[in-house]
Amino acid sequence: MPTLDENHTGARIRDQRRLARLTQRQLAGRLPYSYSLLNQVECGARPATADFVAACAKALSIDVTVLTGQPYVTELQRDRLAELIRPIRESLDLYDLGPNPELAVQPAERLIAGADKLCQEVRATHLRSAARKLPGLVADLTHTAWSTPSTRLWQSLASAYRTAHDISVKLGYYDLSAVALDRMDWAAQRASDPCLSAVRQYMRALVYFREGEYRIGQRLVAAGHGLIGQADETREALAVSGQLHLGGSVIAARAENESAVKMHISEARRIAERIGDASDVHWLSFGPTNVALHKMSAAVEMHQYDDALKQARKIRLPSQLATSRRAHFLIDKSRTEMETGHTEGALKSLVEARRVAPEQTRYHPAARETITGLVHLSRRTPDTLNHMATWIGL
């Protein structure tokens, strides 16, 4: 049976608490959680859920990544992923330098197709492949957009910046993801595209969701809706509006505002019934299935695990659903199964998540914490769980 090292999230919470010269009871007094739960998390007997970590970070006045330990340096070095990040970071710094005399102007259609292809690769969770191709594409798009500016080129550059954000988040480089979102806004403004700007507000809202700043997240969702109000009522605008409501639902759930959750889910469902599957719009995966997935995720965030599990068992994922969304559902399902005592089911869901999206699953905080929880709940650790624990570096 694997044993926890001293680099798990609970241990980092304990260390930061001690640095702040707080006892467990003093920190618990600042949290919307019990002293007992804090004690169990610090010793590793219970997983540190995302909302718990966000609350601790806020109470200790530190960044969430100090507690999550992301990026997971040992694993990243072993997988040679860290060397992919530097070129991405450098490519994001080219935005205001104008044309590059060392580059030739590329055909617009090839660059536009390339940006779309990278979005597709990220949704398929081919992170290494997308990360390798991204810096060159950003450099070519930046040079060509400055040399022969057009709305479509600026839109594609904004899309490439969005891909940089997605890759950075999935690998835990949240500082880089914030830079990518700033660049996305810069390009979206040059494209005069309110829908792209609204997508960027949606992604910013999710950043604050991770940080536990739910009021700011809610304001960003509202700002996104304000931008959509400037666009014509097209299928694109409706899909983005629906996705903003889905983002609003999980933020409201984390803030324990159940009435707001119901409102957002209801509005998203209304839009999905009107336009059907719109997963092709900005690669947001919006549609009836994503509404169901977010309703379940909201139940998980509100700790309504029995209800979330009932919903999960009724959800039938269509074959065309993005791999990233499929893996996210399986990770949510595994957490729900663990919390309701279905440990075998939880392990099975994690194994399936690893099968369909190994990179995303390996670096996903919820997957790692659920594996940690399963190790502690198991009197005799199955070989499969041993393998999963070793795989994430436990």
Results as ranks from 00 to 15, higher is better:
R12E: 01
I13E: 02
R14G: 08
R21H: 15
Q24F: 09
L31C: 06
P32T: 09
L38W: 03
V41Q: 03
E42G: 07
C43D: 07
C43E: 00
G44H: 06
D51N: 14
A54E: 03
T68L: 12
Y72V: 14
R80C: 01
A82E: 13
L84W: 09
L84Y: 02
E90F: 05
A104V: 09
Q106H: 14
R110T: 14
Q120N: 15
A124S: 13
K133S: 14
P135K: 04
V138I: 15
T144C: 09
S150D: 06
L153C: 03
L157S: 01
T163D: 01
D175K: 12
A178S: 14
V179W: 00
D182E: 10
R183I: 02
A187R: 14
A188L: 05
Q189M: 08
D193Y: 11
L196W: 03
A198I: 05
M203T: 11
A205G: 04
A205M: 06
R210I: 02
R210G: 08
I216A: 13
A223I: 12
G224N: 12
G229K: 02
A231T: 02
T234S: 12
R235D: 10
L238G: 01
S241Q: 12
A253P: 06
A255T: 09
E258R: 15
V261R: 00
I275F: 04
S285R: 04
S285E: 09
N290W: 05
V291P: 05
A292P: 07
L293R: 08
H294G: 08
H294S: 10
A298S: 06
A298D: 05
L309N: 07
K314E: 09
S319V: 11
A322D: 07
H328G: 10
K333H: 15
E337S: 06
M338Q: 09
G341A: 08
H342G: 04
G345D: 00
A346Y: 03
A357Y: 00
P365R: 07
I371H: 02
I371S: 00
L377P: 00
R379D: 15
R380F: 14
